[in-house]
Design a protein around this nucleic acid. Sequence first.
DNA 1: AAGAAGCACAACCGCTGTAAC
DNA 2: AGTTACAGCGGTTGTGCTTCT
Length: 261
Amino acid sequence: MGRAPCCDKANVKKGPWSPEEDAKLRSYMEKYGTRSNWIALPQKIGLKRCGKSCRLRWLNYLRPNIKHGGFSEEEDNIICNLYMSIGSRWSIIAAQLPGRTDNDIKNYWNTKLKKKLLGSFSNFYNNPALWPKIHPLQDCPETSNARGFELDNSLDNLIDSETVVESDGNGHRGMVQPVSNFKAKLVDEFLDDKACGYAPQGDRLAQLDGSNNEVNGSKESMIWWSNEFAAKPAPSNCWGTSTSVVQFNEMFQNFEFGYNV
DNA sequence: AAGAAGCACAACCGCTGTAAC
DNA sequence: AGTTACAGCGGTTGTGCTTCT
């Protein structure tokens, strides 16, 4: 037997909130705060809404001191840095940006930042001079492990008639001429925390959750993040051993350079 | 001017974690 | 220990606005 639905779906209003509904919810929340039971709340204030919907409306829109839009460069950097280190943990990222909601950041990332970053990646990938001396995809010592194999296969699948692959004769892939699908796939792989192996570690999340480390968008923070990762052993699903972390950091710094170009 | 396509954002859905019993 | 129900999270969808053709 499954869990009982949180509300009577048939008698629940959906879609955009009216000013009247907002006013009811706001006045209740200002009076009683967030200690209330969200599921029971709509009935108390005479709203034909699901409790979850009320909660979301309050947290993402009606709550005081919420900022909408107008993300600063500094905020962009924080979001990018955190996304690259912990992935799509929007609530944790939002906790570092006072006044921002996870939903807002998620939307901003999906609609703008991702494209901006992708553009920067194009710049980075079309300019081999920016590449690290040891390409992390070129000489993966862990082609024997599952991840390496997967990546290798994934690259093989991506390489089509449009690409030019130079081999050193030892089975090592050299320069892969960037093409659109390759870049897109690469960025997907690279930014995906599972793929690049930068799944968050417990202490890292604890630090972020507790907001013990103020993160800013400065170069120092980027270095701080890089050092943090370099100091830790690579996760087992990483591109490689700790060596790869170093490679990643080098690549990350090059990327940072590319990003700023 | 009108329809199509793209974009931004609000809201919903389904799942997981966890507290209470 | 198992069950239930709520809170919270992240992915996805829907909708309205803007830009393009």
